[in-house]
Amino acid sequence: MRPNAVLLMALLIVSAGMLVAGCTAPGGDGTQPTPTETVTTPMETETPLETETPTATETTRVTTAATTAAGGGIATVEIAADNTAFDTNTITVPAGAQVTIIFDNRDAGILHNVAVYTDSSAAEEIFVGETITGPAVITYTFTAPEEPGTYFFRCDVHPQQMTGDFIVE
């Protein structure tokens, strides 16, 4: 065989192999690749969400979830105001975490917010959320203090009756 014919034959064999390989999934066994899910966490938003007023039979829930990640992690907290009271008196988050508070103001026609301060004097703010008239839901995002300890949260409109401990671990 001539050298050009050998080269042509080799190219045909390689091309045929590539065609056959291209007809199967990456594993070569005919199965489809497993889909993956991407979850995106917003970093800084204050977007009001529309919600329906809960019925008397619905229960109030507060969830604090944290996952470890670079920079302190992520914490998502759900908190509600109902009858001029928060549904929890303690929020716990990791130190330095990106905190998302989903605040549900269930009091029709009444202003509320969530604000976090260094202590109960409320002289030094860590975060002050927008005040909203209920019923409405808003999402607050801020960074928790790096220093572990017990801080203070409240509704600035009702600073005596709507308070709690903001614990940083």
Rank of each mutant, 00 (worst) to 15 (best):
T55Y: 06
P35H: 03
E37Y: 02
T47S: 13
L49A: 07
E58L: 07
G30N: 11
M43A: 13
Q32F: 12
T59S: 10
T45D: 14
T36L: 07
P54D: 02
A65Y: 01
A81N: 08
T51Q: 06
G73L: 04
E50N: 11
R61W: 05
R61S: 14
G28F: 04
T38I: 10
T68S: 12
T84L: 13
V77Y: 00
L49V: 07
I79F: 03
I74E: 03
E37F: 05
T57L: 13
D82R: 06
A65H: 02
P33M: 12
N83I: 00
V77I: 14
A70Y: 11
G30C: 08
A80Y: 01
T53F: 11
A66W: 00
T60M: 08
M43E: 15
T57C: 10
Q32C: 12
A65N: 03
T40V: 15
T31D: 14
G71S: 12
T57E: 14
A70C: 03
G71T: 07
T40L: 13
P42I: 05
A69I: 04
P54K: 04
E50K: 13
P54Y: 03
T76W: 00
G73Q: 06
T67A: 02
E78T: 06
N83D: 09
P48M: 06
T41G: 01
T31F: 04
I74S: 04
Q32H: 03
T41A: 06
T55N: 12
A80W: 01
D29N: 15
P48A: 04
P48K: 09
V62G: 04
T40D: 10
T60I: 05
T47E: 15
A69C: 11
M43S: 15
T51E: 09
G30D: 10
M43L: 14
T57K: 14
T47K: 07
T68F: 05
E58R: 13
E37M: 11
E37P: 00
P42Q: 05
E46S: 15
T55R: 11
T64E: 05
D29K: 13
E52C: 04
P42L: 10
A81K: 09
T51V: 09
T76E: 02
T67M: 02
T57V: 12
P42R: 06
T51P: 02
E37Q: 11
E50A: 10
G73H: 08
T38K: 13
T60Y: 08
A75K: 00
T59N: 08
T41Q: 07
E46C: 15
T63Q: 01
T76Q: 03
D82G: 03
T68H: 05
A81H: 07
T41P: 01
T68P: 00
T38Q: 09
V77A: 00
T84S: 09
V62Q: 03
T76M: 02
I79R: 00
T68R: 04
T64N: 09
A80T: 05
T63G: 02
P48V: 08
T31H: 06
V62D: 02
T59C: 01
E44K: 15
T55D: 12
T34W: 02
E50S: 12
G30W: 07
T64F: 01
P35F: 08
E50T: 15
G73E: 04
A80S: 15
T57S: 12
T47D: 14
T76P: 00
Q32I: 13
T34H: 07
D29W: 04
